[in-house]
Design a protein around this nucleic acid. Structure first.
Lengths: 118, 118
DNA sequence: TCCTTAGTTCAAAGGTCATTGAACAATTGG
DNA sequence: CCAATTGTTCAATGACCTTTGAACTAAGGA
């Protein structure tokens, strides 16, 4: 079961830019890019805002075509739609992610990696 | 006399993306890029919206650090801050402009070039 | 079956954004 | 000086955005 996503050619440039213009969402995208290939579930991002608000931001990203959300059990697995974005807007995602890379003003997604006990 | 502009390092990525996320402003930037090096005055963009509204959008672009506005007589000369943007966010402007290049959904800045009479 | 976990939906509040017309300021040409 | 040109400022409007808590759904484990 998959939630509604735009097709690649329905992705709108102004909309993508507007959606990435929010610091919370930009932080989500930056983190997704840093773990690229690994589908992450929503709870990874709970540092950024409340659960309700996160649901809202992730829906915005999905509806803009920036992320893909797959429902698996009670979880949602989030991935970047890099292929579609690169095909549609070559170089855009990379330059945004690079620019966001050293932006201390963006909120950070804390370490929720599985801790290795000493 | 110059209007208030952010310095290069005051330019914020989320803010730039948000400002470019508006179709009217993206169309302005695309047109500025197509005439790069040539300072254009506001009236060039009157196809896009009312004079009042244009003033608002151009102020947004200036305050975000995307454009530079110089007052000359009663005119304002608008240029892209390409150097600052490229230094701050390498490749971003180019990929945005390239992506906007073939976007038919963006409003067009009509031909206000000086007509050569037949 | 019952409880927990994961996330969504809803309504409401408060904020910001885009757009408008009217009024204003400043420069320039006659 | 007078008038036209160029663009800004202001107040108002409606729309959309972000955030919140409460209530909800759906899946999984004990």
């Amino acid at each position: 079961m998959t939630l509604p996503h735009p097709t690649a050619d329905q992705i709108s440039l102004p909309n993508v830019l507007a959606v990435l213009g929010d610091p919370t969402r930009l932080a989500i995208v930056r983190y997704l890019a840093s773990k690229e290939g690994v589908p992450l579930n929503c709870s990874r991002f709970l540092d950024l805002c409340s659960k309700t608000n996160l649901s809202y931001h992730l829906a915005k990203l999905r509806e803009a075509g920036v992320t893909r959300t797959e429902a698996v059990g009670t979880s949602r697995l989030i991935t970047l739609r890099r292929d579609d974005l690169d095909r549609r807007f070559p170089g855009l995602l990379d330059s945004v992610i690079a620019a966001a890379g050293d932006d201390a003003s963006l909120p950070a997604v804390g370490g929720h990696e599985i801790e290795v006990r000493a």
